[in-house]
Design a binder for these strands. Structure first.
Lengths: 127, 127
DNA sequence: CGGTATCCAAGCGGATACTG
DNA sequence: CAGTATCCGCTTGGATACCG
């Protein structure tokens, strides 16, 4: 397992928030789980671009931070389900807010991506 | 300069939002600029832990994404000022939201950090 | 099915020195 | 003061194979 070598500074709330939902798949996972997609295999089917390993890593982080909890059914084949904790539920308005802002900005953003090579003529210069 | 080699998928709004404010110092910069701290040297003084170079990188990204704009005064010594664009202003409710959630969660979070080595007894196991 | 081990590429950010 | 060049280490996450 990896071991962090640089201590992080969680002085401001923002850094904590980003620590928790800043991972590449964490917001998606929170969203999926909130919609009732609970089992690892389902989650994986829901995000095929991510490997099992990475999803597990991010699920583990969410679990460690108390955002989700898991139920392990002692059956064969194994069965596991994830749930949002109360804390996780409290994140939903925020993730929706982020999702909405990004969606609103998406048209402009995609335009920018297309025009990447153009000159940066935005800077205002006084003469 | 760095060159991204893996195309990112900006299908959902969330990924766009994280792309824009996900950097280590970007939210801080947005916040500072919104409070009238406009000049690079001021911003640096405001976040001494970050190097000039990194702040510049993140400012540049924010500028490229149209979140901030800059005014270059042709004077000596050089003088530059950053401003939030309309888009940048539209981000403030979101950054405040993130800041607030993180602050609310901070006590629990710090408690978790302290108890890191304890057993993970949260998983519910049915027998 | 769920989870982990191993290996590795890319990204991101820190330190420093330097230019105009 | 503002910005850039260089170098380099840590972290993130992707690919694959394997075990219970």
């Amino acid at each position: 397992m990896y071991e962090k070598k640089i201590p992080k500074d969680f002085d401001c709330g923002m850094s904590i928030t980003l620590e928790i939902i800043g991972g590449k798949w964490k917001p998606c996972l929170i969203d999926s789980i909130s919609k009732g997609i609970r089992r690892p295999s389902e989650l994986h089917r829901n995000h095929p671009e991510a490997s099992k390993r990475v999803l597990n890593l991010q699920l583990k982080e969410l679990e460690d931070y108390g955002v989700i909890s898991k139920i392990i059914y002692p059956v064969l084949p194994p069965k596991v389900e994830y749930f949002l904790t109360e804390l996780g539920e409290s994140l939903l308005p925020l993730t929706r807010h982020m999702e909405k802002w990004g969606s609103d900005y998406m048209p402009v953003f995609n335009e920018l991506q297309r025009n990447k090579s153009k000159v940066d003529a935005e800077a205002v210069v006084f003469g």
